[in-house]
C-alpha cells in the first residue's frame, strides 16, 4: 500500500506542508524535509520550481524564481532525493507544472520518482482527461498516485469523475483563488466543504489554498481529512529559516489543541 493511503487510513487532521525545492538555498531540500518530519508534519509536497507557475500567487512564484536562480533543476532534485528514504518515512509528493516533466520525459520522471521513494504527484496543468488517456498507465506502473484538484466551481459530475480516477486523495482548492491568499474562510467556503463532504466520495479530501494559521487549519479539517499549507510556510521560511520550522508547525497544531 502506498504511504499516502496508509497515512490517510491511520490519521485525521492531516497536516501537509508545501515548499519549493531549492529555496531559500539550493541544498536546503533535505534539511527542510527532515525538519518537517521531526516537527510532526504528516505529509510533504516538494515543489519542483517552474518559471511560469500559473496557479500560484506571488509567494510561491518568487520562491520558484529564486530556486531556479540557485540552480535547481529536475535532475538536481532527483540527485538530492536519492537518499531521502534513509531517514524519511512520511509520504512525499512532488508538485510541479507539466512542461518540465514533459521535457524530462514523463516515463523517466515517474521512474526516478519511484526510485527516490516519492509516493505521488500533483501536476496542476495536466488535465484529468489527458492524464487518463495518455499517462495513467505509466503512473500506475511506477506505483505513483496522481492527485487532482477540485474547486468550488467544479460541477458535481466532474468531481465524481475525478474521484473515480483518483487513488489517494482529492486536493480541494478552498476558494476561487491562486495560492497564497489570506482572507480566512467564511460561510461560502464552509458551505462548499460541507457540500463536497456530503457527496460521500471514495477518496478523502485535503484542503489547500488560503490556509495560513491554526484557525484556518481547524476550519479546513472540520469537513475534510486534512489541509495543505504552502505560501504561509514559505513566508515563514524566508523570515526565520529552517530553524523556525518546529515553531511554525507547533503554531498550526497548538491553536487547534487550545480551541
Amino acid at each position: 500500500m502506498n504511504r499516502i493511503n496508509k497515512k490517510l487510513q491511520e490519521k485525521d487532521d492531516i497536516l501537509s506542508i508545501y515548499f519549493t525545492a531549492g529555496y531559500p538555498g539550493l541544498h536546503d531540500t533535505l534539511p527542510i524535509i527532515k525538519a518537517l518530519q521531526e516537527s510532526g508534519v504528516d505529509m510533504i509536497e516538494i515543489g519542483l520550481p517552474f518559471s511560469d507557475p500559473l496557479a500560484d500567487g506571488p509567494t510561491i512564484q518568487e520562491s520558484s524564481v529564486q530556486a531556479l536562480k540557485n540552480g535547481m533543476t529536475t535532475a538536481v532534485l532527483f540527485e538530492q532525493l536519492k537518499a531521502v528514504r534513509e531517514d524519511i518515512s512520511i509520504p512525499l509528493i512532488i508538485m510541479g507544472y507539466f512542461n518540465p516533466i514533459l521535457q524530462y520525459g514523463v516515463e523517466e520522471f515517474c521512474a526516478q520518482c519511484a526510485k527516490a521513494g516519492i509516493d505521488g504527484l500533483i501536476i496542476p496543468d495536466l488535465p484529468v482527461d489527458v492524464y487518463q488517456k495518455e499517462y495513467m498507465a505509466t503512473f500506475e506502473k511506477y506505483g505513483l498516485a496522481n492527485i487532482f484538484l477540485i474547486t468550488p466551481q467544479t460541477p458535481e459530475s466532474r468531481v465524481r469523475y475525478i474521484d473515480e480516477v483518483s487513488n489517494a486523495f482529492i486536493y480541494m482548492v478552498s476558494s476561487a483563488s491562486v495560492t497564497g491568499s489570506n482572507s480566512g474562510f467564511g460561510a461560502q467556503e464552509q458551505g462548499y466543504f460541507k457540500r463536497i463532504d456530503a457527496l460521500n466520495l471514495r477518496n478523502p479530501r485535503i484542503v489547500g489554498f488560503g490556509i495560513s494559521n491554526g484557525e484556518t487549519f481547524k476550519q479546513a479539517t472540520e469537513f475534510a481529512k486534512g489541509a495543505i499549507i504552502g505560501s504561509a510556510f514559505i513566508r515563514q521560511l524566508t523570515k526565520k529559516g529552517i530553524k523556525g520550522i518546529g515553531e511554525f508547525v507547533d503554531g498550526i497544531r497548538q491553536v487547534k489543541k487550545i480551541l
Partner: peptide, 10 residues
C-alpha cells in the same frame, strides 16, 4: 489542447 489548472476548467 487545453492544459489548464482545474480552477480554469469551468
Amino acid at each position: 489542447g487545453a492544459y489548464i489548472p482545474e480552477m480554469l476548467y469551468p
